[in-house]
Design a protein around this nucleic acid. Sequence first.
RNA 1: GGGCGAGUAGCUCAAGCGUGGAGAGCGCUUGUCUUACAAACAAGAGGUUGCUGGUUCGAGUCCAGCCUCGCCCA
Length: 798
Amino acid sequence: MDPLYKPQGVEARWQQTWEEEGLYEADPDAPGETFVVMHPPPNISGSLTIGHCLQLSLEDTLVRWHRMRGFNTLFQPGYDHAGISTWAAIGRTLAQEGRSQRDLGREGFDTYVQEWLERYGGTIMSQFRLLGASLDYRRARFTMDEGYYRAVMRWFVHLYERGWIYRANRIVNWCPRDLTALSDLEVEHEDADDTLSYVRYPLSDGSGHVTIATVRPATILADVAVAVHPDDQRYRRLVGKEVVVPFVERRVPVIADERVEMEFGTGALKITPGHDPTDFEIGRDHGLPELAVIGADGVMNDAAGELAGLSQQEAGRRVLDWASERGLLEKREHYRHSVGHCVRCHSRVEPLIVPQWWVAMKELAAPAVAAVKEGRVRFTPDRFARVYLDWMENVRDWCISRQIWWGHRIPVWYCPDGHVTVAETEPQACAECGSSELRQDEDVLDTWFSSALYPFATLGWPDQTPELARFYPGNVLATARDIIFLWVARMIFSGLELIGAEPFHDAVIHSYLQNPEGKRMSRTLGTGIDPEEALEPYGADATRYGLLKMTTGQDPRFSWGTIEEGRKLANKLWNASRLLLLAGGVEPDARPSSIEERWILARIDATRAQFEADLAAFDFAHAVQRLYHLTFDDFCDWYLESIKPRLEEEDVRATAFAALERLLKLLHPVMPHVTEEIWTNLPARETRLIVAPWPEPETWEGELETMESAQTAARIYRRSGVRIKLTGDSARIFEAVVRPGDDGHGDVEAERARVQKEIERAERMLANEKFVANAAPEAVDAEREKLAQYLAERDALG
RNA sequence: GGGCGAGUAGCUCAAGCGUGGAGAGCGCUUGUCUUACAAACAAGAGGUUGCUGGUUCGAGUCCAGCCUCGCCCA
């Protein structure tokens, strides 16, 4: 064994061994309570980030812990076709060659995407393995593989038959670059600097004008009304009159609607149902026409008349010039507001009225709200339950159709007579007229429509498989908070609707790593950390430890310090094991005969209990920190040092190996490779550590204060050179660990003065009647205890 | 505009219910090749816990207000 632990080689060997020996495999026929984690399938639009590794580390820690505890454990791998994300990523690649997706044609695109899929799908699985993630790789699923496709079709038809899927011509978020509709969740809002123009709309009866404020003057061409708040005294007399829209000189009514914000601009709002979501709602309620002057490509369309073909900016300029020449442009001012952008390609989203497929959410949402309110699904940290509920209780209908070529085709066919046939597989004839001339809907489904089925489609649903019966519902879903609505919510309502049970009981919303500058990590901006930068030099164990240490519930900046700490821990374990093995292997057996031996066994057991509590609460940062201190401070610095003089005794080594075994077991879920490697080197191995039983609670009695007095004496001697009086075991342990070079040479008076100050502090507190009367009794007792200790210390100083 | 979170040592972060002396790792200074580990061990310096008030015997922690940063929703 080399004095320096080198993870390179060791880790790959164990990853291969575990997998070849079938130790990652889940068996529906195996006994035991199940523990199921569905790893969120990464997008095939790229390789893994360090953030994915954090998520995988915490999941694998839970999975390995449960496996050792005897649970029948399934850790499910897969990857996601990631509709628009992949579409946009491929678009970026093609653009470098001067081509676009549409240039390839639908079939050409399919061929192209297959290559992409094989490349990234393979990369993702190998990256999972490099981290030591104990996923059942045989079961890897893809959201567009054959069985999964069938599940998605069943889901669509199910919702259609329930009457919850409908096609409607409504305003949607339209990406003018990708030429597709987006859901509300695929739009991100960013502040933008704009100009707010105040334009006068003359009253048709010549009695004056109404001034409106707009940031999009080009849309004036599609105005169909001016709206004011019904309580607005300034405009009350105008409601019911007509105004003349500038440029197009169309007469439109002044209406009253409560959705108008009186404080914004002049309090009068131009209504453009074709190009604004709020206006669309108001327009529908008032029966207003829906004009469109902007096309799908974002430029002015034929309805814009002489402005057709112009950009919105140029058209807006022309409209304002027109108004200015006629004295209708009151003023222009700078205005900063948030504007929707496509979350994938970052184009400014265009609200357009386009026919799309929708899912009615009301009835699906109700049970999903109840599941969280009744605690059947818990969020960690629990504040995210509120976030989830706020969204779910106000959820709007879900636009599920996308005008791209990558995804599940919408299972709807049309015949020449316009009849609609909805079926899971391609029908032979129109369900209504029997026509065989069927044309399938061109659109594909929102990628999250299929991801929603992940917890059971991966298990074979809609077939009633043994896996589905055994491994649904699962237990823990770990994810970052950005997909609580996109995915977590949708898995919950789809699971409840289709299977009748929530898909998991714990939704763990973990840290979102920031880059060292405190900014969001982004692969496209090159501000991310490549997992290989950590895995190659430090190894998977150190990386896992470091990432778990960063999993605090906050959004910490990525730092190498914690990974370095993990590397030190692996090296420390390695050398502690070397010490014992070099002294001579002997079968592990806990038969402690001294204070320090009982003490370390008790310390390990106490840490086991705390570690279990930490993991149960998904507090990974504290969990790994405990292991670090147990290893460094208790096991190495005190226990091993104190038994060194007796290492030739077989009993001492048997106990030491037994203690090391327990330590390795506690560390295995976090650092699987180095612990398995050491485990293999221990005498009398029969099993792999990965499936070794988790330590049972145990009680080790002993006068543990003997250890404490040795530790106190060590602190004083190391600090000041002063030796305090010790007898018996404490003296022996002190000598073994500290190895004092003399009988004491320090300034005894200075030490006595220091202890005296502590005594006075404690006495002062206990003399405070209010403290003794009001403080918790435990706090007062603790203070008395400290005082007693300091008094004893003073006596020992002689 | 509404909501959530954060601000603690030079850096990255801790500090269950207010538990009574604010800790860890890294970095820095000093010492030490000691039966494994010098990539180690030991000791040390380093803090007005963002600001202002309040509650309390006692506040990093609770309350009110303010400042800065990040995120989500509209």
